[in-house]
Each structure stands twice: as structure tokens, then as C-alpha cells.
């Protein structure tokens, strides 16, 4: 379980690194969406590992609220770029 968690954090570092690099804004948005779902999954795994379900509830809420903000941002960017 600990190995798994480390692996997940390592995988999380990939999109974070991409988001920090100077790239196109769309690539960055994709990286951020990836960060958001990865973080939610990590929260869930941590909550299972600790047996603390209140933490898991937070993860579930993050997952089901989803990327609504990013979705709006993408639409906004399209309108701006037009």
C-alpha cells in the first residue's frame, strides 16, 4: 500500500512538472485536469489506508464536483481566443 502511494505521488509529479513548464495554455489545462483527478484518487487511497472515511468523503466530493471550474475556464478561453 505504501509502495502504491509513492507510485501515485510520482505519477502526480508528471503533470505538475508539465504545468510548471512554459507551454501552450491548452497543454497546461490538460495537465491541470490530470492533477485534479489524480489528487482526488490519492485522497481516496490515503483514506482507505488510514481507515478514516471522513477523508474519503472529501475525495468523493472532489471527484463528483469534478472539473467543473476547469470546464468553465476552457469555454471562457475559447471565447477569448476567438
Amino acid at each position: 500500500m505504501t509502495v502504491l502511494l509513492w507510485g501515485m505521488v510520482l505519477a502526480l509529479l508528471i503533470p505538475i512538472a508539465v504545468a510548471c513548464r512554459p507551454t501552450n495554455v491548452w497543454h497546461r489545462l490538460a495537465a491541470f485536469s490530470s492533477v485534479s483527478s489524480k489528487v482526488a484518487l490519492i485522497i481516496l487511497v490515503v483514506s482507505v489506508g488510514r481507515g478514516d472515511w471522513m477523508l474519503g468523503l472529501v475525495g468523493v466530493i472532489v471527484l463528483s464536483a469534478g472539473n467543473a471550474g476547469l470546464l468553465l475556464l476552457a469555454n471562457l478561453l475559447r471565447e477569448v481566443e476567438r
Partner: peptide
């Protein structure tokens, strides 16, 4: 967890 699964699949796909 089912709710999370549903939300994950639908949201990520639509995103």
C-alpha cells in the same frame, strides 16, 4: 464509491 466512479467517468470523458 459508486457515486465517485460514476462522477469520475462521466466528468473526465466530457472534460
Amino acid at each position: 464509491l459508486t457515486l465517485a466512479l460514476l462522477g469520475l467517468i462521466v466528468w473526465n470523458t466530457i472534460f
